[in-house]
């Protein structure tokens, strides 16, 4: 684990190099910077210290944790005020070992800190975004038992649309897929319908997350 002092150095340099903030060259830099160079996070270039590629990543991670901490303090714990900055500074070092991901998830993958600065996205944010796109998939790609709400109908053929609407498939309708083969069987309200693949391809559904998470055995 990177010592907090080193992280502070990486954070300052990241803000300076990437976000163009002024560098407050504090004297405490000395020993921490030396350690960072040893860890391969900094390198001496001319008379200035610069982030290596690894260092830049580490710096980004610290900034991310700092801003997540700000959001956490402010949004969830309703703390803050004049101490927000200070508390966040100590918090950022605590959010280690995947804790930051948990916090990020809890906060719904926020994109900016309370000051309006961008929070660098972590891997969990990218996954969530991919999920959000994947979440709307045609009925024919659903799995039996899957539930969701109809997002839209991907056809301009008014005849096909008319059939769908006759079955109650309208944007916003709740739908549950029951079976995929040999025909697609689904339930809307209290009625079940069977349709073929051609029609099932046209219905795009915002699938709900899996209905039954695997149950833990009782202890």
């Amino acid at each position: 684990m990177t010592p907090p002092a080193v992280e502070e150095v990486l954070e300052s340099l990241y803000l300076h190099e990437v976000e163009g903030a002024a560098l407050d060259a504090s004297p405490a830099f000395g020993s921490a910077a030396k350690e960072a160079v040893q860890m391969g996070l900094l390198e001496q270039r001319g008379d200035a210290l610069r982030l290596t590629e690894c260092g830049q990543q580490a710096g980004q991670d610290v900034v991310r944790r700092h801003r997540l901490a700000e959001r956490l303090l402010r949004d969830v714990l309703a703390a803050g005020g004049e101490y927000l900055e200070e508390d966040a500074c100590s918090f950022e070092h605590v959010l280690q070992h995947g804790l930051s991901e948990k916090v990020c998830e809890l906060l719904g993958h926020p994109q900016v800190c309370p000051h309006g600065k961008p929070i660098p996205p972590g891997p969990c944010c990218q996954r969530a975004r991919a999920d959000a796109i994947q979440e709307v998939r045609p009925l024919c790609d659903g799995r039996p038992g899957g539930q969701g709400a109809v997002a839209y109908l991907a056809t301009r053929n008014s005849r096909e649309v008319q059939k769908m609407m006759a079955m109650g498939i309208l944007p916003g309708s709740n739908i549950q897929l029951i079976q995929c083969f040999p025909s697609y069987v689904f339930q809307v309200g209290y009625s079940q319908f069977a349709i073929d693949r051609a029609l099932a391809e046209m219905v795009f559904v915002r699938w709900a997350p899996h209905p039954d998470p695997p149950r833990l055995p009782p202890e």
Binding site: S183, V185, L199
Partner: peptide
Amino acid sequence: ISKVLPGEGPTFYMEL
């Protein structure tokens, strides 16, 4: 007949 007759193939939808 389905080869010879013009027109689009049918779609299937049915209430169960």
